[in-house]
């Protein structure tokens, strides 16, 4: 594996997203999002539908679908500005610098190409291998992601494999080009729970083996708790809280984070037929964001100021929180 490009100094973050804003038509969907990801780190981008988490992930590789446009901010990967890359440079970054795994491998895998053929072409394109070497390396990748009987899998079309096997193949494809960052967008949401556990374990193992950084886009705080080092909580297009996962779970500060944790049915206390603590209302649609704090209309702790003024983030050790109730800066 390649280990970072020469122009990146060792303590600069691998990925640095600065004030990223994305709009669809005139409607903002991501609004001033900033965060860093370091080498070997697993960072979770957590949010519900409409939070902007998926669009943030797609922006990293300039993959936002039309009519979405980056309208502000910049993305630095290994010190280079992704927005200023040429077409060929961008194509090399996709798969060679940053790999992508999506929720539905079926939507990405070509239904009439075998997994072996897909892998071989990725390896030839990104690693410049000969056909024979690429075939060897493709087999090695299928074993690395623990697909049973790799030799037989090489000739399989995607529909012949189970959902869990397809997702393993997708992970192999995303990583074969030697990326330093893997963006995994809801990689296990379509899978059964016992298979989900296996795929999460696979991602952690590959992180350890390859020194990979992972940006995990998810709605599931249970998954965040299991695999992430740090979490970014998104609501209505912005990051409302960032913290090391251990602290986020033990002492969340933003009322939205608290509410999300409490309303997870798997974690809430109580016997059968006990009511769950629920947040009222719904996530506001992009374009209909409240003027003050965007969570204020649903927030049990909201007061006058929240309705009129947008809270700026105050810093915390290893994180930040955007809430008037969070009080003093604690850098």
């Amino acid at each position: 594996m390649k280990s970072g490009s020469p122009d990146a100094s060792s303590d600069a973050p691998l990925l640095s997203v600065r004030s990223l804003s994305v709009a669809f038509g005139g409607t903002p969907v991501v609004d001033g999002v900033s965060f860093d990801v370091s080498r070997g780190e697993v960072v979770a981008l957590v949010g519900e539908s409409g939070s902007g988490k998926t669009v943030t992930g797609l922006s990293l590789l300039d993959l936002v679908p039309d009519p979405g446009r980056r309208v502000g901010g910049e993305i630095l990967f290994e010190g280079r500005n992704v927005g200023s890359l040429s077409g060929p440079e961008l194509r090399h970054l996709r798969g060679g610098g940053i790999g992508f795994v999506f929720q539905e491998p079926g939507a990405v895998l070509d239904p009439v190409r075998t997994i072996g053929s897909e892998l071989i072409s990725v390896l030839r394109r990104h690693c410049g291998l000969s056909r024979a070497d690429a075939r060897e390396e493709a087999l090695a990748w299928l074993s690395r992601v623990a697909l049973p009987d790799p030799e037989a899998r090489m000739g399989d079309l995607p529909h012949r494999m189970s959902g869990g096997m397809r997702q393993r193949a997708m992970v192999a494809l995303a990583l074969a080009g030697g990326p330093r960052l893997l963006v995994a967008d809801e990689p296990t949401t379509a899978l059964d729970v016992t298979i989900q556990a296996q795929i999460l374990e696979l991602l952690l193992r590959l992180r350890d083996e390859l020194g990979l950084a992972v940006l995990l886009v998810t709605h599931d705080l249970g998954i965040v708790a299991e695999v992430a080092d740090r979490a970014l909580v998104m609501y209505a297009g912005e990051i409302v809280e960032e913290a090391p996962v251990e602290r986020l779970l033990r002492a969340p500060e933003h009322p939205y984070t608290k509410a999300l944790l409490l309303s997870d049915p798997g974690e809430a206390e109580g016997a059968a037929r006990a009511k769950l603590p629920a947040i009222g209302g719904t996530v506001p649609e992009p374009g209909a964001w409240p003027v003050g704090c965007r969570f204020a209309p649903r927030c049990p702790a909201a007061f006058d100021r929240c309705a009129v003024e947008h809270p700026a983030a105050v810093s915390r050790p290893g994180g930040r929180v955007a809430c008037f109730l969070a009080g003093e800066e604690r850098p």
């Binding site: 869990g164 298979i195 556990a197 599931d220 705080l221 998954i223 708790a225 299991e226 997870d264």
Partner: peptide
């Protein structure tokens, strides 16, 4: 055991439990 949970972080047995699981 497979359900990811907020209380399971750092549980050293969790990964081992899952590795045996296979597919239906």
């Amino acid at each position: 055991a497979s359900r990811p949970g907020l209380g399971k972080r750092g549980d050293p047995g969790a990964a081992r439990r899952r590795r045996v699981a296979g597919e239906p």
